[in-house]
Write a protein that binds this DNA or RNA. Structure first.
Lengths: 360, 360
DNA sequence: CTCAAAAATGTGTGCGCACACGCAAATTTT
DNA sequence: AAAATTTGCGTGTGCGCACACATTTTTGAG
């Protein structure tokens, strides 16, 4: 049972005072070079590790973190990210991190900008947000950089800036994965469809990345000779139109036996799929939202790919915590695991979304 | 921005001293009933939450946890659990948890018993171990219970005892999952084989549970009409014999198109599978060991099911931490997530595992 | 060589809590 | 009724560290 090494022990051994050791450890200067060297040597010798408890306690400064997120009530995906943020906030509360969420309208760049200005005015010690709108996000990032406010960006990456870290989904790879899963259930000569149920697909970078990934799987030696079709459909909220669309799709492509729904709207496809095709066409979709889960249980959706959004929010805050409080280096880019969900293992992942571990 | 409530604040508001508040909070007695009531009321009123940092710091007592594990160098599975234990140990070190591993010989019950006795003699504050041998484990559990030492058991459950919690794998459900995965890649009328590559399969409870789960999937309306075959083979370390066995299997069952290898030895099957069958027979196996990973990359293994052993060790320690330091309630039974691994998402899971060793 | 400014180092306080100790009032014992 | 307990409560100290401030030593200009 080795007792732990304290600053005091180092001071004794190095023949200096604790104040000097402290200055060395924090690189605060005002220490003679040879003394510094000596202290560092002793630190190394005794294998000193700062007691984070005492450190955080003594530091006694509350960092204020602002999290700028889309309104959670209006979107279940962002609701989950919000949950993760709250969860992390609770876990780090006692370590002097105060997390305050702010909300913007998911569809209003100018609202994002307005909130961003408020946020800067509030002078937080750290910032978490998804750079949804390019111009507005850029402005926010630049301003933060000028003012030396560490930023963690989530969900969407943005070029040419250097936030503290990025935590997000790997869209390309999730496309590859989707292809792999469908492929396993197909036989030679069949056809699959990449289906984008989105308004303005052209602008949605992540959907395009998923398509790229999906195609690359088959291009680089998928197991089967399979034709790939891509369809965009915007009126997905109108069941009649969607049904008509799917009817057309299946009749004009009788060999169609797999659909890769590139976002969380797989349940809408199931709703409107012609009777004849049900069961014949394999479905791979995204996200553990309730309507998808129901169809997963009913064996109508075959696979759901999940990149735990709760974890995304959670990790975002934890990274700020590590940076600000623990003063640790953090990884610049962190992709979330690509979880493959079927009926038989969904329960574990749902539980994970609720009870998250505090792991420091 | 509410500042946090301290014991001092409660003392002020209740018109008593901090010492009294402390006695109330810790139920240490020596407090007049009406005073206690008043204090509790104020605690509630102000929404006091103990500052865990300061609490742990002031508590200043190191709990000693002993973890009795199979020797990690001799088995990559236990090595990973060991890693998880070490990782958790590091995380909770500063909170006054000292974790010391002890090792026993995986195949020697008497060694387990000897170590168990040493361990009891050492009077630890908490205990983590897999109850590998029934009699010996029972003795250890009973003794701990007498001495009020909290125990966390991992990997294997044991009847009729009440440890603090059990953390382990859900064998039955992993069998169901294996069936689901194979099923997706099959067509009607094909045949699948449950393959136990183990010495003394009859005694291996977890293998039998996997079989039960596997069969139950097809019994309860799997998608296809599929025949199920079960084979046990013990000489899996002799490539010639295994090849012969597989050759026989495939020729006598030409419709065989899927093998569910119930443990981590899927790679051995791949090694010895007849040329003609390669690619025709889908393989689902277990565990992210190196030799399996190679074949996963080469598309020879289709799916690996993983129940992260690192997490098992990690959670074991974390639960003791929660119980001893945070004084929180912990869940009695905790199953690990069933992760589905393919080439396209393996990387994320490997990163979680920190290190992996050469396979058996 | 002198003296003030700058650099280097030491000392002291407090973060929030747990717990030992000590003192007074209430209660029991003789 | 005095002595011996017991009960209820307040005070003080220390956990390991960060940081402000006090003190000593060094430096450099005149």
């Amino acid at each position: 049972m080795k007792k732990r090494v304290r600053i005091k022990d180092i001071a004794n051994r190095a023949g200096v005072s604790t104040g000097t050791v402290d200055r060395v450890l924090h690189n605060r200067g005002s220490v003679a070079p040879e003394v510094k060297k000596k202290v560092l040597q002793v630190v190394d010798e005794l294998g000193y590790e700062r007691n984070r408890l005492a450190s955080a306690l003594a530091y006694n400064k509350a960092f204020r973190i602002l999290a700028l997120l889309p309104e959670p009530e209006k979107d279940s995906y962002w609701k989950q990210i919000h949950n993760g943020v709250q969860k992390a906030a609770k876990a780090v509360k006692h370590y002097g991190l105060l997390v305050e969420p702010m909300y913007f309208d998911l569809f209003q760049p100018q609202d994002f900008h307005a909130k961003a200005q408020q946020l800067i005015a509030a002078q937080p010690d750290g910032l978490l947000f998804p750079p949804m709108f390019y111009e507005e996000a850029k402005w926010l990032l630049d301003t933060c950089q000028q003012q030396n406010i560490p930023q963690v960006i989530i969900n969407t990456s943005i070029e040419g800036n250097h936030p503290l870290c990025y935590i997000g989904q790997d869209s390309y790879q999730s496309g590859v994965l989707g292809a792999r899963l469908l492929d396993f259930g197909l036989t030679d000569g069949q056809m699959v469809c990449i289906l984008n149920l989105e308004v303005g697909t052209k602008a949605a970078h992540h959907l395009l990345d998923k398509e790229k990934g999906f195609r690359s799987y088959f291009a680089n030696g998928g197991n089967k000779e399979v034709d790939i079709l891509r369809k965009d459909f915007e009126a997905f909220n109108d069941p009649a139109k969607l049904s008509e669309f799917l009817q057309n799709l299946t009749t004009s492509h009788p060999r169609l036996s797999g659909i890769f729904v590139t976002n969380s709207r797989a349940h809408k496809v199931i709703n409107c799929l012609p009777e004849a095709s049900a069961g014949e066409i394999k479905i791979v979709g995204f996200d553990l939202i309730e309507s998808n889960l129901r169809y997963l249980q009913e064996d109508k959706i075959n696979f759901l790919i999940n990149q735990n959004p709760v974890e995304q929010g959670y990790l975002g805050i934890i990274n700020l915590f590590k940076h600000l409080v623990l003063k640790e280096e953090v990884e610049r880019t962190q992709y979330l695991p690509l979880d493959i969900i079927v009926k038989e293992n969904v329960e574990y992942y749902l539980r994970k979304q609720l009870t998250f571990e505090m792991a420091l």
